[in-house]
Design a protein around this nucleic acid. Structure first.
Lengths: 234, 234
DNA sequence: CGTCATTTTGAAGCCCGTCAATCTAGGTGG
DNA sequence: CCACCTAGATTGACGGGCTTCAAAATGACG
């Protein structure tokens, strides 16, 4: 497949009003005219499933805010197989290496139709210099995301395959209503849980038979929270 | 066991000259008189194996620099069992939640005789306000440690028990000469690799028989790098 | 309707967890 | 100095969960 530069469009005020927070927190520390000045640097684009948002090794020019969707952050083991080390959901910020100007250390790939807003790292750095409160917010966010990262990894890499799958489904429902969750492919689930594709498939099939989940479509399900919560804490 | 407050002593200039870097990087951005002023806030203490350095939930008053030794960072799962989410080695900084003033999110426990230098988070924050370069260094360090954390977790939680143990031993040799490594108890190894104590013991015994490692003492070994490197990449 | 990728299901085997016994090293007290 | 005790390490036996290899079923799409 030929690589084409992704088309980004400038963010309009309406976009920002509808934005799922987070960078609001980050930039709310800036004063009014500062915010307006920042806004013109924001750009928006959409990604289809399997499209990369950025790649490991890319210069950290932008950081990205997920306006909606689901993306996986990949790391490659010495043997070449890929492992998903984190999932980013609506409202999450990814590619934060851009803040320090470092190259990106993970590859980010959309798993569902996803819309992101990209912000130049340069702008964030400048903003931080003139407004120290922004830096405090950044530090706090780094803490939180480092924390989230190892929670994520330990939750999904300890316990039986059933337990880990239950935890994954609970994680996926958190950003959705009516206990619904987007269902990744079995292969992706395997990469998330550290199991084979077949095991992921077997566990999902078992969950369906036992009523722990109910299929809504190929790639969505409704979760039985009581059952899954019970399984997840085993 | 009665809890007694740990006795810390002020750091002398000699201590700092012999210090295994890292906070030098962090504070080298401060000017000369600034550094002298900082020095008087540094305090040193030693910990025996199994002694906690700080506990999850403690107010983040200090951050800690390991002058030498080995410490484990623990997280507790919903079911109450503990999982080691990171190892800190000579030169590493731990308890960085203190920088933002948050309470500590992990419990840190010495695994070998360990000496730490503690630095008030307050001092680091003040230092950052007057000297922006320090904040850049902090941000970069957060990036790096977040990165190290998920590398650590994925390396030690994927692959067979043999492969994970080989990776652990290689990690433990990195800070030592002559390919030597401190050997944690089998129980601790289990907590690190996500296996049982028995499995850890079996793998170590097998490594000894096959010459992958050679025991020097109860708690030290010399590693056959060629063999371990081969195993680790399987 | 046919093709191809993905998912599901089956069967065999292995790795690892579990339970339990044995062995070793270090410490204590006689 | 030796008998005794205890915690940790080692080893064995067995069962179960997951992987592996393979085949069948399902669904997406031209």
């Amino acid at each position: 497949m030929k690589e084409t530069a992704k088309a980004y469009r400038p963010a309009a005020l309406d976009d920002c009003l509808a934005c799922p927070a987070r960078h609001i927190d980050l930039l709310s520390s800036a004063d009014a005219e500062g915010r307006v000045a920042l806004l013109q640097h924001f750009e928006i684009a959409t990604f289809a499933p399997k499209e990369p948002i950025y790649r490991m090794g890319d210069p950290g020019e932008w950081l990205y805010l997920l306006r909606f969707g689901l993306a996986k952050l990949l790391r490659y083991s010495a043997s070449g197989t890929e492992r998903i080390v984190h999932l980013a959901r609506t409202g999450d910020t990814i590619g934060t290496a851009a803040i320090t100007g470092n190259h990106h250390r993970r590859t980010a790939v959309a798993m569902t139709p996803t819309e992101v807003c990209r912000i130049p790292g340069e702008v964030v750095r400048e903003c931080g210099k003139t407004n120290p409160a922004v830096l405090d917010a950044l530090l706090a966010q780094f803490q939180a995301s480092a924390d989230a990262a190892d929670t994520f990894l330990t939750e999904l890499s300890t316990g039986s395959a059933q337990v880990r799958m239950a935890r994954l489904l609970l994680f996926l429902t958190e950003k959705h209503d009516h206990n619904e969750a987007p269902l990744p492919s079995r292969e992706e689930m395997g990469a998330l849980l550290g199991t084979t594709t077949e095991t992921a498939s077997r566990v999902i099939a078992e969950f369906r038979r036992e009523g722990a989940i109910e299929m809504l479509h190929n790639d969505r399900c409704r979760c039985n929270m009581a059952v899954l919560n019970l399984l997840a804490t085993l």
